[in-house]
Amino acid sequence: MIAQAPVPMRCAGRPTLGGLVIPWITLHAGGRYLFGALDKARRDLALAERLCQVCGQSFDERICLAVRPADVHAGYTAEPGMHPECLAYSVRACPMLSGEVTRYRVTSASSGLPGVAEADDGPRAGRPADAFDAWWITPRSYGVKTDREHPGQLLGIDLDVPVLRKRLIRPAAGPDPDSLLALARQALGLEDPAPSCLYQPDGASQPHNTVKESE
């Protein structure tokens, strides 16, 4: 973990774990908080009521979003927005946003638990971390997309809106240089495919103890 970030005043009353503020939308199950797992009810409430995912408070003049290229393609981000100061704290404290973590979890910390809105499951499991950008929007531009086939299901915050400012939070993580070299040698027929190659194609199982998993 990088140097501990100062806690925003908005989060002064939030519970902490290991010195880190526990975001308002974090799932609490089995008597403990599960970092990386989102409480679906709180996530939906934050989207609908315009609440910050970190401190749980209403927005002021600016709303910040953590956006991946895949979110832009989908047209929405599934995670609620943040106050500028809550985003700044998250960029320092969250291993995924800070770049400390290089891959998504292979197995969710909340696997099998009810009431979970996962951020890191499905096709992303075990894959290199995406790039994240910070978007600043106004409350006037804030809109929530719903599933056309299930109108009561909230998809996330609409990204087809005017953006005041964008900046890179972290770049995408890719295969390590040794893995890329091994793939190049295989493509050129210089060696037989080796099962110890760290990079795995989509859908393949990941080797143990070779990558860091998100919190």
Results as ranks from 00 to 15, higher is better:
1 M>S: 14
3 A>V: 12
5 A>R: 09
6 P>V: 07
9 M>Y: 04
12 A>Q: 14
12 A>F: 04
13 G>F: 00
14 R>M: 01
19 G>C: 09
19 G>T: 07
19 G>M: 05
22 I>S: 08
24 W>L: 02
26 T>A: 12
30 G>Y: 11
35 F>Q: 10
35 F>E: 06
36 G>M: 09
37 A>N: 06
38 L>I: 15
41 A>M: 03
42 R>L: 14
43 R>W: 03
44 D>F: 06
47 L>W: 04
48 A>C: 03
48 A>K: 12
50 R>A: 14
52 C>I: 01
53 Q>V: 02
53 Q>L: 09
54 V>L: 13
56 G>D: 01
58 S>V: 01
58 S>Q: 09
65 L>P: 07
70 A>D: 13
73 H>P: 00
73 H>W: 02
74 A>S: 10
76 Y>F: 15
77 T>I: 09
80 P>M: 13
83 H>C: 02
84 P>K: 03
86 C>H: 01
87 L>C: 01
87 L>Q: 09
89 Y>P: 00
94 C>I: 01
96 M>W: 02
97 L>M: 05
99 G>Q: 10
102 T>N: 08
103 R>L: 01
104 Y>D: 01
107 T>S: 14
107 T>Q: 13
113 L>E: 08
113 L>S: 10
119 A>S: 04
120 D>G: 00
120 D>C: 05
122 G>Q: 07
122 G>H: 09
124 R>L: 04
125 A>K: 11
125 A>P: 00
128 P>D: 07
129 A>S: 14
134 A>H: 13
135 W>E: 04
135 W>H: 06
138 T>W: 00
139 P>I: 05
140 R>L: 04
142 Y>E: 07
143 G>Q: 15
147 D>N: 14
148 R>H: 12
148 R>F: 10
148 R>T: 05
150 H>D: 14
151 P>N: 04
155 L>D: 06
157 I>N: 08
157 I>H: 11
160 D>A: 11
161 V>R: 14
162 P>H: 08
164 L>W: 02
165 R>S: 08
166 K>A: 05
166 K>Y: 02
167 R>W: 11
170 R>C: 14
170 R>Y: 00
172 A>G: 11
172 A>N: 02
172 A>C: 07
173 A>Y: 09
174 G>D: 09
176 D>C: 10
176 D>H: 15
176 D>L: 14
181 L>A: 15
184 A>T: 06
185 R>N: 01
186 Q>G: 03
187 A>P: 06
188 L>Y: 05
188 L>G: 07
190 L>N: 04
192 D>P: 02
192 D>G: 11
193 P>N: 13
194 A>H: 04
195 P>D: 13
196 S>I: 00
196 S>Y: 08
198 L>Q: 12
201 P>D: 02
202 D>S: 12
204 A>C: 13
205 S>E: 11
206 Q>G: 01
207 P>W: 14
207 P>C: 08
207 P>Q: 06
212 K>F: 08
212 K>M: 11
212 K>T: 10
214 S>E: 12
215 E>L: 08
